[in-house]
Amino acid sequence: MTKVSFDVNGDTHQLELDTRTTLLDALREHLHLTGTKKGCDHGQCGACTVIVDGRRINSCLTLAVMHEGDEITTIEGLGAPDHLHPMQAAFVKHDGYQCGYCTPGQICSAVAVLDEVRSGIPSHVTADLTAPVRLTNAELRERMSGNICRCGAYSNIADAIGEVAGRSA
């Protein structure tokens, strides 16, 4: 067992954990923040995406004890049913989900993607590596490709993110 302390959605948590506990299981099983989903537990689906120190990561492929002092934002930290984050509201409006299981990961990823574009991080489909990055539809779809939606809501998710990006641009 090892002690670790980190911030989740603005609250500091001190935990004593089996070193084997992933950040994902720490959130779901210890803090009961079950909005973050376990789809594959192997970094192959993106359902577990959370934002750590401003960057989106797969919480299934990182140990909780490696996050001493980190600031973690989960889906619960973005908004709640009675006060939705704009990205959450856009997903509802555009029906950017079906079964809902990949949805928190999609939304966390989408929020982080807009930040990545703002910070000028290029992607596989960025035509000119030395020019400023623009959020085209192709950019958005490439950047979101680490979040699998088996229900196939991709087209609607793209519409939802596009709307939020347009509003914030």
């Binding site: 509802v92 029906d95 809902g100």
Partner: peptide
Amino acid sequence: TSRIEGPLKTTGTAPYAYERH
């Protein structure tokens, strides 16, 4: 109509089986 459970699904508060603490 938008899905009535949409606010739950998009906020991670819709409870799935393994999560029923």
